[in-house]
Simulated assay, not measured.
Amino acid sequence: MRVIAGEARSIPLITPKGDDTRPTQDRIKETLFNMIQMEVPGAVFIDLYAGSGGIGIEALSRGARHAYFIDRGGEPIKCITANVHKCHFDEKSTIIKKDAAMALRSIHEKEVDIIFIDPPYEADLYEHTLRTLASLPYVSEYTTIICEASLEEDFSFAEGLGYEIKREKTYKNNKHVFLKKVANS
């Protein structure tokens, strides 16, 4: 796994040992960033359930102003810390080792531009995470929320939480679901 484009282009990243994390493949990561390329420069980015931190690091490499990396595992946090340092993004990064809901509540930004959510597929965390985000002041109708999920994952619950599905991009084994908070919800 490597950084695909930008300031840290081609720098190899380390990934946590074991099967607990599932780094986004380079080809899928490139497709994702091609879709959001205009939103990334200057953005505040949250990489939630960050694993190796590859998505947040890619955002920083492509001009994001700041990235928050959230994971509760010791091994992922070590990898994220090493990768951020290797890419010289220490000053633009905040690494939080906490449960997702607690970590999200500890962020005090006026607005967050992009939130990437990639929990373990079998953990059934999307609804809980989106419910938490719906209550936070830095998530607005301008915030892009991207969920990486299995092809079978059903996001029909999102409307009831005040979100609108804006786009869905499917790949061979998974998909990206793009959501926005409905104004005044």
Rank of each mutant, 00 (worst) to 15 (best):
S106Q: 03
R22C: 01
I146P: 02
Y163F: 04
K172D: 15
P41A: 03
N34V: 06
T132H: 12
I11V: 09
G63P: 00
L13Y: 06
R22H: 05
S140V: 12
K181T: 02
R2H: 04
V84K: 06
N83E: 08
N174Y: 04
R62M: 07
I80W: 01
E75C: 09
M102H: 15
T94Q: 09
A59T: 05
V177T: 13
S140E: 01
I115W: 00
G6R: 09
D20I: 14
T132N: 11
P119T: 12
K98F: 10
I46K: 06
G53M: 00
L13K: 09
I70Q: 07
R167M: 03
G160T: 07
K29R: 14
K181N: 08
P23Y: 01
I70K: 00
R65N: 10
P76G: 05
T81H: 04
R105F: 01
R72T: 14
I80N: 04
S93H: 06
K86N: 12
E7I: 10
M38K: 14
I96Y: 08
K86M: 13
G42S: 10
T24M: 11
N34P: 02
S10M: 13
E168H: 08
V182L: 04
R131W: 03
H108S: 14
E39A: 12
G54L: 00
G56D: 13
L136M: 02
G63N: 06
A8S: 14
V3T: 10
E168V: 12
L161F: 00
K169P: 02
F116P: 09
L104M: 11
H128R: 15
K92I: 07
D26P: 03
I14Q: 14
A82H: 14
K78L: 12
S93V: 10
V112L: 01
K180G: 06
Y68H: 06
V84P: 01
I11A: 04
I114A: 08
Y138R: 01
T15W: 10
A5D: 07
V139Y: 00
E164W: 07
N174Q: 13
R105C: 04
T21N: 07
I165F: 07
G63L: 00
Y121N: 14
K17T: 14
T81G: 03
R2S: 03
L32D: 02
C79N: 15
L32A: 08
K86P: 12
I115G: 09
I11T: 12
E30Q: 11
K181G: 04
V3W: 09
K92F: 13
G51F: 04
F157V: 10
Y121E: 12
P23C: 04
A103E: 02
G160D: 09
G18L: 01
P137E: 05
K97F: 04
L48V: 11
E122L: 15
L48P: 00
N83L: 01
S140Q: 01
D99W: 02
T129G: 08
I145P: 10
L130A: 07
P119S: 05
L161E: 03
